[in-house]
Design a binder for these strands. Structure first.
Lengths: 234, 234
DNA sequence: GTCTATAATTGGATAGAC
DNA sequence: GTCTATCCAATTATAGAC
């Protein structure tokens, strides 16, 4: 079984970027330059890690590969992140915010067709521009979300409940057909993420990627139509 | 990078179950019993492997774990499957058939609403009864389907093209709203698989699993309604 | 902060007895 | 067919010089 290293043991070990401003000989600007440089390196590593983790998973990726891709040495990487798991967790944490964002837009005052149509577009933009984020999120879910479980229960859950209320309000106002809010939300997530997570399949079958401007618009339009109008002729 | 061991090298090494009927002292029934026993062991290993691979992926699972779960020794497992990759490939192969099956049902003579409604139910049954299969398939896709790519291009592609024709025929007959067949198929796949692949999330947010009879029916109904009628009131 | 060893471990795979 | 004993490669992680 994947060993869950005592994360608590690392709680004290904070990343080097935390140590700042000790009585310095260098000028303030030189210090800032240095700090920025460090932050850049950190995010270079995080970026490289996302790219690899999102394809091959935590265990399918070696620290070496991440280091090579980020153009740092392995031991240098381990200076910035105490161990592989800490790196992984940091990558995931950055993800969640990005993932929750689009849903926040919903509010009862909006026109539901408009709001949901916009939402579909925004999610497809994420699938197009950040497919790696989507894939890593999916990987984590498949594994039972060992590291995201808490956040799922807290943040995501309350957000979803709030938005479900909005959807219910729309239905009661007769602006939306009676549909279970949870299932609607699942449907929206599933259909839009699919183009990122199953990108290879989409490409193999349709011959296109979301990068393809025409195909992107066609996708937006079709997903919107299916969800809003359905496929039975009116 | 994940090393792709020369699979060709193993082409000759066939599984032990292939050696049969040499002039035997034992009775025919004894031999059959033995053969069945061997097949049972093979499928026990395959089953255990599916369970683990579908959660932790190829690299997240050790041969040892599979062996333990199948209740055989590691070296005994390696007698049945020459190496880890061969085991993995065999698990995947069994999967594809299961995965393609439901789509074959479509034919132009059917009523589209009925056919698609049935399809949704059948796929959700698979998501409920074989979530591990769905997850492994998803894992493989995320990784770029290195082992399924050929099949994707061949079998799946031609099947999808054939069924796209059926959908187009329905549209031309005015029985279906104008929608791109590919996107419709993607939507159906995405929405139904979601309940297996993102099962943890579904559980965390809705409090239910497809195992839950009531929830299952509610899911079927909602997915059908969204796809067929859409959510804008008529 | 960055690098060069190197320790320590895991895990895939083989050899050979039974 | 099944087991025990190993071998060997791949990594993770640490120590310590600069």
């Amino acid at each position: 079984m994947p060993k869950t290293k005592a994360l608590a043991a690392n709680a004290g070990k904070e990343s080097p970027a935390r140590k700042r401003a000790k009585p310095a000989v260098r000028s303030a600007s030189a210090v800032n330059r240095r700090l920025r440089q460090i932050e850049d390196k950190r995010s270079a590593i995080l970026g490289a890690a996302l790219g690899l983790f999102s394809r091959f998973g935590l265990h399918g990726t070696s620290i070496d590969q991440v280091a090579a891709r980020a153009d740092v040495s392995k031991s240098n990487l381990l200076y910035y992140f105490a161990n592989k798991e800490e790196l992984y967790v940091n990558v995931l944490r950055d993800l969640l915010a990005l993932w929750l964002e689009p849903l926040r837009g919903f509010s009862a005052e909006q026109d539901p067709a408009q709001a949901i149509g916009d939402y579909i577009r925004r999610k497809l933009v994420v699938s197009r521009d950040r497919p790696d984020a989507s894939r890593l999120f999916c990987l984590e879910m498949i594994q039972g979300a060992p590291l995201l479980r808490d956040e799922l229960d807290r943040e995501l859950r309350t957000l979803v409940e709030k938005k479900s209320e909005v959807i219910r309000a729309w239905i009661e106002a007769g602006k939306l057909a009676p549909v279970d809010p949870h299932h609607l939300i699942f449907a929206l997530w599933a259909m839009t993420q699919h183009y990122a997570d199953f990108g290879v399949q989409v490409q193999a079958l349709s011959g296109h990627t979301l990068e393809d401007e025409g195909f992107f618009e066609q996708t937006v339009e079709n997903v919107q139509r299916i969800v809003l109008q359905g496929i039975v002729p009116r």
